[in-house]
Design a binder for these strands. Structure first.
Lengths: 349, 349
DNA sequence: CTGAAAGCGCTTACAG
DNA sequence: CTGAAAGCGCTTACAG
C-alpha cells in the first residue's frame, strides 16, 4: 500500500528479496507468483503482498532463460521505404496484434526492411538468438525464402488471415482464393449492374502470392460474368506504375470503362490524374481500389473500394501465432473477407 | 564451411559446446567471441571457426541476464487507432530507426496504444521487466505523464529531433521553437509573396507540445510579417475537424485567403471538400499542409506543404537513444527543419 | 594467455 | 505444503 522507498533506482528487487521479507524460500515465491500449486493460500497472499510492496517485476531475461521462451514475437515487414510511405496499413495491423499480445504479456519486435532477403536475415537473427518465440509473415511472395527458412528452422509462424496464403504444412483451410473470388464477384456484379461490360484490372507485382490468387479469381469471375476473361496489366503498387498501366489500358482498342486496382495508391493516382489521362470519373472510367484508406476517402470523387478490417486482421494473426507458440486454443476464427464500399468513382451520386 | 548436422532442430549449441569442441574453457570462448583481450589470436580464430561451424548464436536471454542489458529499445506510439490510419508517418520513422539499431544488434519493441496513459503502462512494464534499455518518445503532450515516468524511473530516452521538445534535464539544445519559426517564415513569406494578407492557421490539439511551440512561432512570425497575429483555430487532426475549423474561419468577417494546417489530413480534407466549402483552391483559398504525404501529392490540386525527412528523423532518434544507452558518441546531429514544398494549392500553375 | 568458479534472476524436479 | 539445489547460457573477476 505505502510506497516503500526501495533505495537507489538501480536496485531492482528479486524473488530473493521477496523470499527474505516474506520468510519463505525462493521456490515458494516462484510458485506463489506464478499461480502454481505448492503453496498455501495464506503464503501465496503474503508473497503477493510482499511482491507488490517491494515493487517487484519479473526479469524478462531471467524468465526467458529459465523458461526457454522469449516472451516476444516478431513482425518483419519487407517493403521498400518508398512504398511504406504509401502504406498506412501496417500501423493499424500492428495495433490489432498489440491488443491480443498485451493480454498475454507478449512483446512485439518489429523490423522494417527493404526486401525479403533482408527479412530473412532478421528472422534468422531473431530466431538464432531466441529473441522471439514466433513470427508473423506478411506479403508472402511466390517461392518466398522466408517460408523456406521458417520451415527449415521450425519457427512458429502465422500469416494474415485471408490475405496471405497458408504456409506449406499449415492447417489453415484454403479460404483465401475463395475470399478473393467472393470479393471480385461483388465488384464485378456491381460494375455490370452499372452497365459496364469492358472491365480491366491493374494488378500488383506477380511476385506476391496474393496477386497470383487474385489473378486466378479475376479470371474465373470475369469469365463467368462476362463470358470472357477481362484484361489484366501488372504494375508495381506505386502511383507512377498505376498511371502507366492505366494509360496502357486506355490506349487499347475497346478500352475499359471500369478498372479495378489491386491497391489504393494506384487508384488514387488515377483519380487525381484523370484530367491528364483524358477521362472523367466515373462517367468515362469507373474506378475501384483493392484497399481502403484515407486516400480513397479524400479523393474526389471518393473511391469505391474493397474494405477490410485491418485491425481485426492483426488481432487474428496474433491469435493464430499465440495458439502455436503457447499451444493454446483461442476463439474461433471469424473470417472476414473484403467488403465492397461504393463511393463516387462507381456511382453518379 | 561444411554444414555440420547439428542434430535435432531443438538443440542449440552453447558456448559450452564450443569450448568442448575447440578444447578451451568457456571463459576463453566468451573472450574470443566478444573480441576481448585474454586469448591468443590463434585461440580466437579457432574458437570463431568452431562457433561458425556449430552455427552458434548468442542466447539473447543469457546475454541479457548476465550483462544486465536488454539489447532492445522501445517505441510506444500513443495514438488513437482511428488517427493511426491517417498516419503513414510512423512506418517510415521506424524504418529510419531500424537502420541504426540493426547495426548495433539492438532490437525494437513496438507498442501501439490508444492514449498516453496506456503508453505509461507499457513503458512501466517494459522497464520494470527490463525488456528495453531505453525508449523513444513521440508526440509529447503538455504535462506528459510519460516524461514524468521516464524521469522518475530514470529510463534512458530520446525524442524526435526538432519535432518533440527536449526532455527536462535533457542536453538537447532548444532548436525546436526556432525550427518552427524558420518554417513559418518560409510559409508566410511565400504566401505574402503571392499577395495574401489574410492568413489563418488550423492547429492541432493544444495538448501537444509541438502545437504549443507552433502557436508561439506562428504568433511571432505573422506579427512580424503582417503587423498583427493571424488567427488560429484548434482542430483535432482529423478530416472532420479540419473541415469544421475551416468552415468557422470562412464564415468570419474578412475570411482568410490562405490557411496553414498543422497536418496533412486536415489540409487534404479541405481540398477534397472545396466545392461544398464554396471555395476554389487556390484562387479563393490557398492551402498549406504541415506535413507531407501521399495525401498531399495525390490531392488535386496537389497540396503545398512543409516536408521533413521522416526516415532521417527516425535514424536520429535511434542514434540519440543509443548514445545514452551505450554511452557512445555518434555522428554529429545534422538538424533538418521542415522545408517548404510548393504545389498546386499555393500556385497557379 | 588460460581455466575454475561465482553470479545474473528466474524455474523446476526432488527430497523432506 | 515447504526448502535446498541444480540448471538455463552467458559474463567476469580471480587465481594460476
Amino acid at each position: 500500500m505505502a510506497r516503500t522507498s526501495e533505495g537507489a533506482a538501480g536496485a531492482r528487487p528479486t524473488i530473493r528479496d521477496i523470499a527474505r521479507v516474506a520468510g519463505v524460500s525462493k521456490a515458494s515465491v516462484s510458485y506463489a507468483l506464478n499461480d502454481l500449486p505448492g503453496v498455501s493460500e495464506e503464503t501465496r497472499a503474503r508473497v503477493r503482498a510482499t511482491a507488490t510492496e517491494l515493487g517487484w517485476r519479473p526479469s524478462a531475461a531471467a524468465r526467458s532463460l529459465s523458461r526457454a521462451r522469449a516472451g516476444a514475437v516478431g513482425l518483419a515487414v519487407a517493403r521498400d521505404v518508398r512504398l511504406l510511405e504509401e502504406e498506412p496499413y501496417y500501423m493499424r495491423f500492428i495495433a490489432g496484434m498489440e491488443g491480443v499480445l498485451a493480454r498475454e504479456g507478449v512483446s512485439l519486435l518489429l523490423s522494417v526492411v527493404p526486401d525479403v532477403d533482408a527479412a530473412v536475415e532478421v528472422l534468422r537473427d531473431w530466431w538464432g538468438e531466441r529473441r522471439v518465440d514466433g513470427v508473423v509473415l506478411t506479403d508472402l511472395r511466390v517461392e518466398d525464402p522466408r517460408v523456406a527458412l521458417v520451415a527449415e528452422l521450425g519457427i512458429p509462424c502465422a500469416v494474415r488471415p485471408g490475405v496471405d496464403d497458408r504456409l506449406p504444412g499449415g492447417e489453415r483451410p484454403g479460404v483465401p482464393v475463395e475470399a478473393e473470388r467472393r470479393s471480385f464477384v461483388e465488384v464485378v456484379d456491381h460494375l455490370v449492374g452499372l452497365g459496364h461490360r469492358r472491365l480491366a484490372r491493374v494488378a500488383g507485382p506477380r511476385e506476391f502470392l496474393h496477386t497470383r490468387r487474385r489473378d486466378v479469381a479475376w479470371a474465373e469471375v470475369t469469365r463467368s460474368r462476362l463470358g470472357r476473361e477481362a484484361p489484366v496489366v501488372v504494375a508495381d503498387h506505386t502511383s507512377a506504375g498505376g498511371l502507366a498501366a492505366t494509360r496502357d489500358l486506355l490506349a487499347r482498342a475497346g478500352p475499359p470503362t471500369a478498372v479495378v486496382y489491386d491497391n489504393d495508391v494506384m487508384a488514387a493516382a488515377v483519380v487525381a490524374e484523370r484530367e491528364s489521362l483524358g477521362v472523367r470519373v466515373p462517367e468515362d472510367l469507373a474506378v475501384v481500389a483493392g484497399e481502403d484508406s484515407m486516400l480513397c476517402r479524400l479523393a474526389s470523387p471518393a473511391i469505391s473500394c474493397l474494405h477490410r478490417d485491418v485491425v481485426a486482421d492483426g488481432a487474428q494473426s496474433a491469435r493464430s501465432l499465440l495458439e502455436v507458440v503457447l499451444g493454446r486454443r483461442s476463439e474461433a476464427v471469424v473470417f472476414e473477407p473484403h467488403r465492397l464500399v461504393v463511393r463516387g468513382t462507381t456511382s453518379t451520386g
